[in-house]
């Protein structure tokens, strides 16, 4: 398939799959690893992309957009995800809103910030406790399939889905000594 052409970067594949599924609203709190993806969606007129002040604000905007008939995704880093538990438990999950989330994974495989390392450990337990489907994205060759199928599933089952962008895929953020 054209989309899986070797040589495509992870962020090009992500943008391509979002487009295919008409996910055209991107809210985010920025992150260094996400930078090429954020630049790509800002440069493409298909997307409406903007930064919000807090991650839960983005989750609220995206929930409203869904109820109004528009698809969206919230992008953030692990520490940002840690601020979402209340909004997920009181809005996304009980109202059955298929909020899509893309988290750049900090706190593992070479982390230099102890705060990131600790808060990262709360992410999967929160997702698991709230029974939110999540996928850790580690391989370029699986990326399109996982995104493509799980967006279809999220919409069809009105259930949120969280993608964890592993340093194995992105290279992560490297400590500049």
């Amino acid at each position: 398939m054209e989309d899986g052409t070797p040589g495509r970067a992870w962020y090009e594949i992500v943008a391509h799959v979002l487009k295919r599924h008409q996910v055209d609203l991107v809210t985010y709190v920025p992150d260094n690893v996400l930078r090429p993806l954020l630049e790509l969606v800002h440069a493409d007129p298909f997307f409406t992309a903007f930064a919000v002040a807090r991650e839960e604000e983005g989750l609220g905007i995206n929930a409203g957009a869904w109820m109004g008939g528009r698809r969206s995704i919230l992008m953030m880093q692990t520490s940002g995800f840690a601020t979402l538990a209340n909004a997920l438990a009181s809005l996304t999950v009980p109202f059955q809103i298929p909020n899509l989330m893309l988290v750049s994974e900090r706190g593992t495989m070479g982390e230099f910030n102890i705060g990131q390392q600790l808060v990262a450990r709360t992410m999967r337990p929160v997702l698991n406790t709230l029974l939110i489907e999540s996928h850790t994205l580690t391989r370029l060759d699986e990326l399109e399939f996982i995104l493509d199928r799980s967006i279809v599933q999220a919409v069809a089952t009105q259930a949120p889905c969280c993608y964890i962008l592993s340093p194995l895929l992105t290279g992560g953020k490297v400590f500049a000594a």
Partner: peptide
């Protein structure tokens, strides 16, 4: 729409609806 518990998110939810339906 009646929010339940996500304190502070009425304006963001309203913003999302407004983005999705710009004529409403």
């Amino acid at each position: 729409f009646y929010m339940l518990g996500s304190m502070g998110l009425a304006v963001p939810i309203g913003m999302g609806v407004a983005l999705a339906q710009p004529r409403r």
